[in-house]
């Protein structure tokens, strides 16, 4: 079902009826404003400042999402708002189209990636978008060794290929370990997603439950680990 089409929009429309704040049309002052435009004068409307990515893509606050559906929504919304379709319109509408599309593009990039999606949800709930980057304590020893090896590779004479090969082998082993650890972390994250979604499915509006909020610290920790692992894996790949 195309849930963004206008005919079905009204029944599923609670996401698009501007949760919280509502505002008259900037152009004709009518209050007949939908998510897409003003029903009275057809001018497009700027997204409200409290619109979030989950809402604008009509995905609900779920963490396991249907990526095909997300893409479909992204295409549909792009067709509504893309600046290419507003070249003939007044300047104000062009600017709104630009801003809304930039918002959708960022939203799509964020929701597409499970880690970015979770980090975004955490920032929505906690109102703080800063996530630390932290090495997992279990890996301190390995990381110390990796840093040492990286250091040695850096100090290496370019022509010393035998030594480079040796160090590369060492690094390759650690790289595999880091990757495995990251995979485990991602699996843990996934099982938290499942738990979150379970409660989310039963939640009838209102704010998030305490049980849901209880999962956030664990998610944050995993995200800070994966962020760290991404970085060190990149450094390792760059070095060899």
């Amino acid at each position: 079902m195309n849930i963004l089409s206008e005919d079905t929009g009204s029944e599923r429309g609670h996401f698009f009826e501007m949760a919280g704040e509502s505002r008259p049309c900037w152009s004709c002052q009518s209050d007949q404003v939908t998510f897409f435009n003003c029903s009275s004068c057809t001018a497009i409307q700027q997204f409200l400042h409290d619109t979030d990515y989950f809402t604008s893509f009509n995905m609900g606050y779920k963490l396991n999402i249907d990526l095909d559906l997300l893409e479909k929504q992204y295409y549909e919304l792009s067709r509504r708002f893309h600046p290419d379709y507003f070249q003939q319109k007044p300047k104000e509408e062009q600017e709104i189209s630009l801003g809304n599309t930039a918002f959708l593009n960022k939203g799509y990039q964020t929701l597409k990636n499970p880690q970015k999606r979770a980090a975004y949800l955490v920032s929505l709930v906690e109102g703080d978008d800063h996530l630390p980057t932290e090495a997992p304590a279990e890996l301190f020893e390995d990381i110390f060794e990796i840093q040492e090896t990286l250091e040695e590779i850096r100090a290496l004479d370019q022509s010393d290929e035998a030594e480079f090969k040796k160090l590369k082998t060492v690094l390759d082993v650690s790289l595999e370990k880091m990757r495995e650890f990251e995979l485990d972390e991602k699996e843990k994250l996934h099982s938290l997603f499942v738990k979150w979604d379970c409660i989310e499915a039963d939640r009838k509006g209102g704010s998030f439950t305490d049980e849901q909020k209880g999962y956030l610290p664990q998610m944050k920790q995993i995200l800070s680990h994966t962020a760290y692992l991404d970085r060190i894996i990149n450094d390792m790949k760059a070095a060899v």
């Binding site: 792009s78 067709r79 893309h82 290419d84 379709y85 070249q87 003939q88």
Partner: peptide, 16 residues
């Protein structure tokens, strides 16, 4: 083709 999209002559194609 893109020129025509921008001038409103084509509405079923879109470049991202």
């Amino acid at each position: 083709v893109q020129a025509k999209i921008l001038s409103g002559g084509i509405t079923d194609m879109l470049l991202l």
